[in-house]
Simulated assay, not measured.
Amino acid sequence: MNSYWVGNEPRFSDRAEAGRVLARQLGQYAGRSDVIVLALPRGGVPVGYEVAQALAVELDVLVVRKLGVPHNPELAMGAIASGGALYLDEQMIRLAGITQAQIVDVLGDERRELARREALYRGQRPPLKIEGRTVIVVDDGIATGSSMRVAIAALRTGKPARIVVAVPVAPEGTAERLRGVADEFVCPHSPRQFGGVGRFYRDFGQTSDAEVSALLARSRQDIL
């Protein structure tokens, strides 16, 4: 299956093809033991699998949970991510008057949910180590970039050597918005008119939990 065009804009046939296209722009990281691909579940995993396969590097999931402000959970005061990474927005915490006890309560709830999701995807296998490594963070696309920003902020606390954000499609100007958060931004298609990630795929069906688990298991077998 190959990408096709509608007007003057390319569409990917599916996430797997998007991952193969993306991997071609990441060749400098191929075969390096200090490189790891972390995919955001669920939709980022089929993309990340193809990237990891092409580069012959390890693949894992980066499960991220937003820490919502009490009584307004849509407003983020931070985030947690796989591997114990924690990011707290101290300015938001001060402005919202959030107490330490409230932070502890929210953290407890979200850590339990993160642990549940990680167990679902990887079983008892611990997260891959990121300290001192180059981490390529992959998703199937970026819309506003807000989720990716908090994901990277949380990941940064794990002390990776370098963070590369790699996505098949994102709005024009996303690289500028992510400057200072990621060390590098790789994106083969950055249209001016966006309108959502899904419009750049012919098949943008929901990725299942079973598919995520299967791709992670297959990747581990391929690396061994």
Rank of each mutant, 00 (worst) to 15 (best):
72 N>G: 05
64 V>P: 02
128 L>R: 12
192 R>N: 13
192 R>L: 14
83 G>V: 11
44 G>V: 05
164 V>S: 10
16 A>E: 12
31 G>F: 13
114 L>R: 04
32 R>F: 12
110 E>W: 04
167 V>Y: 04
41 P>Q: 12
138 V>N: 02
177 R>E: 09
144 T>D: 09
193 Q>T: 15
129 K>R: 14
130 I>A: 15
151 A>H: 06
209 D>S: 10
164 V>L: 09
70 P>Q: 07
19 G>W: 00
125 R>E: 14
165 V>D: 01
39 A>R: 01
114 L>W: 01
186 V>R: 08
77 M>V: 11
210 A>P: 01
189 H>R: 13
139 D>R: 05
15 R>W: 08
1 M>A: 13
56 A>D: 15
61 V>I: 14
219 S>C: 13
64 V>I: 14
206 Q>N: 13
170 A>G: 08
73 P>H: 07
130 I>V: 15
49 Y>M: 05
144 T>Y: 10
99 T>L: 09
196 G>Y: 14
38 L>Y: 05
42 R>P: 01
111 R>T: 07
51 V>M: 08
37 V>Y: 10
63 V>D: 02
221 Q>F: 10
216 L>K: 03
207 T>A: 03
35 V>K: 08
75 L>I: 14
173 G>T: 07
17 E>N: 00
155 L>N: 05
155 L>Q: 09
85 A>M: 06
107 L>Y: 12
80 I>F: 03
110 E>P: 03
17 E>S: 03
54 A>H: 08
12 F>D: 05
31 G>T: 12
37 V>C: 03
112 R>E: 15
154 A>S: 15
39 A>Y: 02
84 G>L: 10
7 G>N: 14
68 G>S: 11
155 L>A: 08
170 A>E: 04
50 E>S: 05
